[in-house]
Amino acid sequence: MIRRPGHTVNASVRREPATLPSATGLDLDLAVANVARWGGDTGLFGGFLAAGLAGRGADPIEIGQDLAAVAAWRAGVVGLRADALRAVASCLDAGLGEAVGATLGMPGSDVAGFLEGQRTDRFFWPAWQHLGRAYLVARVGGFAGLGGPWLAHPGDVIAAGEGQWLVEVGDELWEIDADLFGHSVSPADEDPADAGEPVDGPGATDIRVVSVPTSYLLEVVRDAA
């Protein structure tokens, strides 16, 4: 079996073909195209957004935009993380806990706790709080021939900040930015010699990225508490 990049949080998501909902004043086809362009999973985006908008009437355009941003983040667009967290808080303030919970794939009553947890730990997921063992959070990278970014096996990994790592691949240095739902892999600007000592992210010192000898994928794992 060929392993692909992905996030464990999506493993139990039921993927059913969802008809893209309509939202007043918003071009959701364009949003789907942008989610795809930014590396998100368009199937997940459509499904989570449909769940969030289900049964809602004509919301103000800002609410539709906020739910779409949360759905896109949930579908793996890591670049939306900061704005999506703002959008989640905004929806909670507006009494839309159930809608934003459906968009995230959790009960509305869990959203406040999830938001609080995410603010200190970008890999926080309520269901994993008391697992008591190490677990896989995500697989990232991969061989170029299978759609990944790399032509060589990834080597040493250096922590560069919260949810950020630098990895040597051949004679190149790449940067990984990841959170619970998505990740981005891009050539690093920094020279390996300048990368300095490993940096621990606040509240997430037990998250590591490890290189696997038999794969070009890197594994993001959380150590046992």
């Binding site: 949003a31 942008n34 989610v35 779409a68 670049g79 900061a82 704005d83 981005s184």
Partner: peptide, 21 residues
């Protein structure tokens, strides 16, 4: 070519979702 796998690492907003490339 292939400078980014997974889109921008940060800085996107809800409004960006509805802007054409």
């Amino acid at each position: 070519p292939h400078v980014q796998h997974g889109g921008p690492r940060d800085g996107l907003t809800a409004a960006d979702l509805f802007r054409s490339p």
